[in-house]
Design a protein around this nucleic acid. Sequence first.
DNA 1: CCCTGTTGTTATCCACTGATAACTTCTGCG
DNA 2: CGCAGAAGTTATCAGTGGATAACAACAGGG
Lengths: 179, 179
Amino acid sequence: MVVARTRLTAEERQEQLLRAALTAFTTGGYAGTTTDQVARLAGVSQPYVIRLFGTKQQLFIATVDHAGRRIEERFRQAAAEEPTLASLGAAYDDLLAERELITVLLHGFTASADPAIGPVVRDCFGRIYRTVRELTGAGVEETRQFIAMGMLLTCLGAMQVAGPGAVPREPWMTELLSK
Amino acid sequence: MVVARTRLTAEERQEQLLRAALTAFTTGGYAGTTTDQVARLAGVSQPYVIRLFGTKQQLFIATVDHAGRRIEERFRQAAAEEPTLASLGAAYDDLLAERELITVLLHGFTASADPAIGPVVRDCFGRIYRTVRELTGAGVEETRQFIAMGMLLTCLGAMQVAGPGAVPREPWMTELLSK
DNA sequence: CCCTGTTGTTATCCACTGATAACTTCTGCG
DNA sequence: CGCAGAAGTTATCAGTGGATAACAACAGGG
């Protein structure tokens, strides 16, 4: 994380904080991450984070929304090269390797019981689903299986079965990841 | 939750607390749930929960493990009637409707970054995968798709798109859940 | 140059939470 | 009975974490 000791506009600082929040929330989830961790990652004071986003909840919501949009964007880029599910699948593999965007979205799922967070998360997910269908022209059943496999890989990533920092593979892990 | 004001053996109380913990952790996840919430649900004092389980972490681990075993058990019951993926799928639908076992496992996924929790969660998941294969005799690819669909439904349940207490359905939700 | 608005900090608060210790109450058994 | 051990409580603490308020420092235009 860049610790540039420059003055930034509020907007620039918010963008930087969103990146820091992405990293922080990826590891600890909503409840398990402190606003101070985010602040330190960005090199600002904790109260300033609160001032710029109002509450920790709003910061999390902004982070999830941001992650959703960036995932969508990556799908669009992939579709620009080749508008197939296979192409989007490769893009998703990249996202999984980078971890943060995907993992934060997963943390959004588990925080959806919060009535302020749920709607935003559902919105993100719905947009992603629709984007996949529109970009590839795939049918409902095909798309559902695509998304389902994505959710499996997401969960495996979260439990460190796949992706960077993964645990040594046991037989069942190898089977599930064989292709 | 039963608030029987009886004295129980430590073992009985632990079982009761596991049930309470299942409910509590389902809603709030690991970091977002307090040991006091669990204690109140079971009608005992918070320090007693700690005494019986050592730490909140160990309580969560026991809860996840318990959930994993009960899920496995339900699959065995389903297979006893009919050892097919369709049969296990129906059992999974029931589990999703009941919410708790499945949701707690999902919260386990997102808490897997904790080095004490990760191994337990992976173990649960691995056992469930192997159980599905052994019970149904399904191939790797078939089983993977089965589990993948399970993860999708699990995530949809967490974000209240499916299951009890679900939000009004938007078009994309209907599509994803159509069969 | 100065002064106004914006960026950012420090100091501080209060509620909460997990954990410990010490004490109490119940129960079953000799 | 009476007492030993198990079940369970109350009191308490130390650390934390989100949020507020008041202050400081910097930039840019008149």
